[in-house]
Design a protein around this nucleic acid. Sequence first.
DNA 1: TGTAATAGTACGATAGTCGATATATATTGT
DNA 2: ACAATATATATCGACTATCGTACTATTACA
Lengths: 113, 113
Amino acid sequence: MREPTFFVLASLADGRKHGYGIIKDAEELSDGRIHLKVGTLYAALDRLQSEGLVVAAGDEVVAGRLRRYFELTEDGASTLQAESERQALNARRANDRLKKRAARVALKPVIAR
Amino acid sequence: MREPTFFVLASLADGRKHGYGIIKDAEELSDGRIHLKVGTLYAALDRLQSEGLVVAAGDEVVAGRLRRYFELTEDGASTLQAESERQALNARRANDRLKKRAARVALKPVIAR
DNA sequence: TGTAATAGTACGATAGTCGATATATATTGT
DNA sequence: ACAATATATATCGACTATCGTACTATTACA
């Protein structure tokens, strides 16, 4: 799963939201790092719905504008959970290696002298 | 950065390796979850070289077979570091939300009674 | 009055991965 | 002796998520 999709699910884990709301929320959740493109978002929502990870949760018209609401399914929540654990583990593994590497490269110049 | 590329860097963080060695190492590092496809690997190595994250580190012939070795640059190491931190943070954020969500859905049936 | 923010739709381009095919040698099993 | 598996790299078309941009439309604010 790629980062934009991950943030769509993570955003919806907070509760029912509409498309534009997801964009704003994901931006906040990622400290401004992620700005979901509209094309990416609605494509992702369509795909996630067809996969059963997200369901449409009513259309509303607020201030003359259509809002399409979505919410996470239990499947969506457990998929996000699994994805989150996978990423945390990958990060830990990479970090272990980087630490060992740092120890190695710190040693090298001393030997070379 | 996508998972296969991440594992190419993580594998090389361990030290100098050749293509096939990276595939085997990534498999081990990920507890068998990741099996890098050859197409993906060599495309990734070319790309990472052109980005300066990886450098060619000598060709050798071992037991009649050519081995093309690669190693991580300092840029590659810090890119992997940044990527690893990003993923760990994303995972933490998603997890926080999932915990809150679990608390919410655990409450709902009680109210409904 | 026009600019920013809100909200959604549409679509071509790009990039990374997948899956398959090819080539070649070494090792292991029957 | 022969087949299967492991080692090792190269290449290429297909797929798909994302990007980037343009478009429509309303409301709020300066």
